[in-house]
């Protein structure tokens, strides 16, 4: 009976797993993501407004560059003191998708690999998670630039 049952894709068993597996708490995680994500964005807006209030001389485009900077520093601090992973456990996508999540995905492998040295550990692993994001993002930006060029020459 057991012969020939070692290596096979047993569809019936995979179906059974689906039935028995605990269900993802969709509603709870979605609400958490909504509130955590919304809150982080509000922090960004607050920095934006504070900058505009205290430094009226700054033009809006400079402020727009300062806000992500501040959020990156904030996320770095929270990652370093071990709080961001706890926010992530609650917020899920709400803490991954804001720019703070991007920073967390760079800082966390950096400090994880401190023990393997600065060059081979910290620097080599810093973009382990965010590297693909940057590669695809920059390639896509070049493509969109070329699209803009083509459209311009057509019109």
């Amino acid at each position: 009976m057991l012969a020939g049952m070692m290596y096979m894709e047993d569809q019936r068993y995979l179906e059974l797993i689906k039935q028995r597996a605990p269900k993802t708490r969709h509603l709870r995680t979605m609400i958490a993501a909504f509130f955590v994500g919304g809150f982080i964005c509000c922090i960004g807006q607050a920095f934006n407004d504070l900058c505009a209030y205290f430094f009226p001389a700054l033009n809006p485009s400079t402020i727009k560059q300062i806000v992500p900077l501040v959020l990156v520093v904030l996320a770095t601090l929270l990652t370093c003191i071990g709080i961001y992973d706890k926010i992530g456990e609650i917020g899920g996508a709400g803490s991954i998708i804001p720019i703070t999540g991007f920073a967390n995905s760079i800082i966390s492998p950096a400090i994880e690999h401190k023990r393997e040295g600065i060059i081979n550990g910290v620097c080599a692993n810093m973009f382990k998670i965010a590297g693909p994001v940057l590669v695809i993002g920059i390639v896509a930006s070049v493509l969109s630039g070329i699209i803009a060029l083509v459209l311009k020459s057509v019109t």
Binding site: T29, A33, F39, C41, A93, I96, I97, F102, A130
Partner: peptide
Amino acid sequence: FVVGGSICLIGQVLINTTKLTAAKIL
């Protein structure tokens, strides 16, 4: 709050239904 939260909510739906990792979501 609503716009930022909604974008994250869409991401959470993706995570819950497709089991994508953080890198792929980003």
